[in-house]
Write a protein that binds this DNA or RNA. Structure first.
Length: 226
DNA sequence: GCGACAG
DNA sequence: ATCTTGTCGC
């Protein structure tokens, strides 16, 4: 066992965490159970400083993508980051922030993977299951899996294969170029719908507006606090 | 054994 | 993720 895992185990039982992820993973719904029409899309992101987590949840109208609500909250950081266990570090800050919202959320974008995870249960799945709402994971880099460059789907994305399953999508922009966005479902949404919604929410750069704004707001929230 | 490794 | 100036490029 490496040093990182040893330190992590000092405050956290890795084997227990793995068991939790494996069990909860079976409860994920990969069908579309979203309200229609979708009126509000939300994105949540966390930034850190001095042992504190600064979280912002940004709600936008859909499909206009106009700002309707920004909710922030701060809590103490309890665990270090370890690939594969991001949820155990960010779940509390995210849940706490989401519960402060006034507006409803039809679908929530998460900065991280959903099913594109070693145990098919990344942060997006954990948040979706905890709040029992549709969630979509959007990450900038792959954690596991392989991109099937020879299989372009709907002209939109290349599937991400992991252990024989399509667990995510590497979004394509133009030509053969892959945008810096890997989409995987969190909960209560199909991969196809997740990809479509993500594309519909991209205005600037390569991340959907709810996440792009949540990232900006969480950092300015942290600066304002420190 | 070695490399890879969300935020 | 965070610590950080100037700088290369569209």
């Amino acid at each position: 066992m490496n040093l990182e895992l040893k330190n992590f185990n000092a405050v956290f039982n890795v084997n227990h965490a793995i068991k939790i992820q494996e069990e909860l993973s079976e409860r994920i719904i990969d069908r579309d159970l979203l309200p229609h029409p979708i009126r509000y899309v939300c994105g949540v992101d966390v930034s850190y400083s001095n042992g504190l987590a600064f979280t912002c949840a940004v709600t936008l109208s859909y499909p206009e993508l106009s700002l309707v609500e920004v909710i922030c909250s701060t809590v103490k950081v309890t665990l270090p980051y370890l690939p594969g266990f991001l949820a155990f570090r960010e779940l509390k800050p995210i849940i706490r922030t989401m519960r402060k919202r006034y507006y409803p959320v039809d679908v929530l974008f998460i900065d991280g993977h959903g099913r594109a995870h070693p145990r098919l249960f990344g942060l997006a799945c954990h948040v979706g299951l905890s709040l029992n709402i549709p969630t979509i994971g959007v990450a900038k880099r792959l954690l596991c899996g392989k991109i099937l460059y020879n299989t372009l789907v709907d002209g939109l994305y290349y599937p991400v294969l992991y252990k024989g399953n399509i667990v995510g999508a590497a979004l394509k922009v133009k030509d053969e170029r892959i945008i810096g966005a890997y989409v995987s479902i969190g909960h209560k949404v199909s991969l196809r719908t997740a990809v479509k919604l993500t594309f519909n929410c991209i205005r600037f750069g390569c991340s959907p507006e709810p996440l792009r704004l949540a990232h900006i707001y969480s950092k300015s929230f942290r600066r304002h606090f420190c």
